[in-house]
């Protein structure tokens, strides 16, 4: 999974933030709930639909970290993804998203 043209900053968001980040490249952590064909679903404080690229290796029920572009329809077009194993604490992932935006001076330029 090479890192093609990833913008230098990828704010961490979850399902609740998709609408605000249309057309931006973001980073999402969630639990893989289903993979079928070119699409997948993850749960990141709510459902997120992923449009996969050909070499995505998502493992159902594991955590995944995904970098992608938020499309106008609210789906995420995946640029890169990584498997995070089965032991991701999703409540912390939610807290990370919260502090990312609450104290964004530490994480990204607005």
């Amino acid at each position: 999974m090479s890192s093609l043209n990833i913008s230098p900053q990828t704010p961490r968001i979850n399902a609740a933030y998709l609408e605000k980040w249309v057309n931006h490249t973001v980073r999402i952590v969630g639990k893989v709930t289903g993979v079928q064909g070119g699409m997948a679903n993850i749960d990141s404080a709510g459902p997120v639909t992923l449009q996969l690229t050909r070499d995505c290796a998502l493992i159902p029920n594991n955590g995944a970290e995904v970098i992608g572009k938020v499309m106008p329809d609210g789906t995420l077009k995946v640029l890169t993804s990584w498997d995070l194993g089965p032991d991701v604490d999703y409540s912390i992932a939610e807290a990370i998203v919260d502090v990312n935006h609450r104290y964004k001076q530490v994480f990204y330029d607005s």
Partner: peptide
């Protein structure tokens, strides 16, 4: 080894910054 270490690091960073 454990992704939660990455998450922990960001929380610790924010705590120190604040």
């Amino acid at each position: 080894e454990d992704y939660n270490e990455v998450q922990y690091h960001f929380l610790e960073t924010v705590a120190v910054h604040l």
